[in-house]
Design a protein around this nucleic acid. Structure first.
Length: 274
DNA sequence: CTCCAGGTCGTTG
DNA sequence: CAACGACATGGA
């Protein structure tokens, strides 16, 4: 059964293509297969209607949560612009972006892979893993592998999936999650700074990857990951010169506060399309 | 051929 | 503690 949801402040293409997730296929404009929650969901947007194909009423709830559709983004945008008028143009460019509520383990693995790679190649490696170790959901669509399965994958095998030098990092991440040393439930009880410290104990996980995991996989919408794009655009708009990461981080914290993650994603999208 | 990519690590000064 | 090269792989 199909489900139609009224949306505003939402654009499917912007939300999927803004670099926060890697597992989707495009059919045509605003018509996609989204691979998440062990499902391959066909979804299409027509104006302010978002259509989920072949799902139950129960599943509809989960997808609304996944796409963060219950949150009032008008208020978020107004707040950010009131704090920083320069953000108006940037937000308008990606005004339909929403921050997806993604799986913790999947974001951890995905953003370890993301380092020093371009987005199409990140997608490729993740897809290699899904094909090899994930459950087949439908024709040519594979679920993200379970933590149990990935824990059995060797460094050599990760290299065969083209993870390159990140292979040993992936082994370490899986090992720490499998053993319970890194545990989503426990992390959720911690402060952002404490989560950062915990995640950084994983080899190949630094400040940037940790912040991505916090923002996309642990619901910490105030996290503000700073990558080369964010650094560049922040320097261009606010600093007019080379600026150290901790200075930018502090600035973002003071300006955007609990809305840091949203601001970050508008900035990221803007800096990539212009 | 060279250079670089949603970074992080290990080594130098 | 700041700076810098290494790291796999693939595309420009």
């Amino acid at each position: 059964m199909n489900s139609i949801v009224k949306v505003k402040d939402f654009n499917l293409e912007q939300t999927l293509e803004c670099g926060q997730c890697f597992r989707f296929k495009k059919y045509s404009d605003n018509h996609y297969i989204v691979n998440a929650k062990d499902k391959a969901l066909e979804v299409k947007q027509e104006d302010d209607n978002l259509i989920f194909y072949n799902i139950s009423k129960e599943e509809e709830k989960n997808w609304i949560e996944y796409f963060d559709l219950d949150r009032d983004y008008s208020e978020i945008k107004d707040y950010i612009i009131s704090r920083e008028p320069k953000m108006k143009e940037i937000i308008e460019a990606g005004s339909g972006i929403r921050i997806l509520n993604q799986d913790f383990f999947e974001t951890l693995i995905s953003f370890i892979i993301s380092q020093n790679k371009q987005i199409p190649q990140i997608k490729q490696v993740i897809n290699n893993l899904a094909i090899k170790y994930g459950e087949e959901l439908s024709d040519d669509n594979y679920a993200f592998p379970t933590m149990e399965r990935l824990s059995q994958v060797t460094e050599e095998e990760f290299r065969e999936s083209k993870a390159g030098f990140r292979a040993k990092y992936l082994v370490d991440a899986c090992e720490k999650v499998k053993s319970g040393l890194i545990n989503e439930k426990d992390l959720l009880t911690l402060s952002n700074e404490e989560i950062l410290n915990e995640l950084c104990t994983i080899k190949g996980v630094g400040v940037k990857v940790s912040n991505c995991v916090m923002l996309f996989g642990l619901g910490r919408k105030e996290a503000f990951p700073i990558d080369v794009w964010i650094k560049r655009i922040m320097e261009e708009i606010y600093f007019k010169k080379e600026t150290k990461l901790d200075i930018i981080q502090k600035f973002a914290e003071e300006k955007f506060g609990s809305y840091g993650g949203f601001a970050q994603q508008y900035l990221f999208y803007y800096s990539r399309i212009k």
